[in-house]
């Protein structure tokens, strides 16, 4: 089972491995600086289509340690992310989730390297109008874009709906949908105006405890959210 040869066959495992490496880097303070790059950490070649596909799935989160600690990314990771960005341009009919994921990876690369032009943002009008359960579902899928320093119409829209994102978090925990809860926890760590009665910090711990062992993406989102709670000043409330 170990030698996955096509991108499709071993992708879920590769995503788990990669997410686990990133989550550990986020949880380990500055130790990520001494860790090997992603390819080295998951023991795959940087040109392996499986790893490229995996970075495409994780989107901007492939670069999360550098983005969240505000340090330079390993050159090999930048090259890998650029390969993933260029290998999978979203088709015109791409879903919002897929279009935003691509945009997020491209924008994260631009933020970290200063190279390239800012791509046109996909549609974000829905963020203002979706009922809260549907908003929660969609925003959780785009949690990699909940990063300080990556300005987007999504983040601007999210900042206007802290209560609805909080309601989504409550619903996700009640449904034991730990991945959705963790993704929403990230947005809640980013936006101002989250009600204190939500108990976000205890909630992040709870979600990690319940869901991280079975899904490394839960660990990644929770660690990112917890890091943001400590290091990133929450934005001011929209006027």
């Amino acid at each position: 089972m170990a030698e996955a040869t096509s991108p499709a066959s071993g992708l879920p495992d590769a995503v788990q491995n990669t997410a686990s490496v990133i989550a550990s880097a986020l949880a380990g303070g500055g130790n990520h600086l001494s860790a090997p790059d992603l390819a080295g950490s998951v023991a795959l070649s940087a040109h392996d289509p499986l790893l490229v596909a995996c970075v495409r799935v994780l989107g901007a989160d492939a670069l999360a340690p550098a983005l969240l600690y505000g340090v330079a990314a390993a050159p090999a990771d930048v090259a890998l992310a650029e390969t993933a960005r260029d290998a999978y341009p979203p088709p015109p009919e791409a879903t919002a989730a897929s279009a935003w994921s691509h945009w997020g990876l491209a924008e994260a690369l631009r933020t970290l390297t200063g190279r390239g032009v800012r791509e046109t943002q996909p549609d974000a009008d829905w963020v203002a109008g979706e009922p809260w359960p549907r908003l929660a579902h969609r925003m959780a899928q785009l949690a990699p874009l909940a990063v300080p320093g990556v300005e987007s119409a999504l983040a601007t829209g999210a900042a206007k709906r802290p209560v609805d994102l909080g309601r989504g978090f409550v619903r996700a925990v009640r449904r034991r949908d730990w991945l959705q809860a963790a993704g929403l926890g990230r947005w809640l760590a980013l936006v101002p105006g989250v009600p204190t009665t939500l108990g976000l910090d205890a909630g992040l711990d709870f979600v990690h405890h319940m869901g991280a062992a079975a899904d490394a993406r839960v660990a990644l989102h929770v660690r990112a959210a917890q890091l943001m709670r400590v290091t990133a000043p929450v934005r001011r409330a929209p006027a």
């Binding site: 209560v163 409550v170 009665t197 939500l198």
Partner: peptide
């Protein structure tokens, strides 16, 4: 105020 915030989530949860 607390119920204004969170009752909608409980309605949704127990309806579901």
């Amino acid at each position: 105020d607390y119920l204004d915030l969170w009752l909608p989530t409980w309605l949704e949860d127990w309806a579901e």
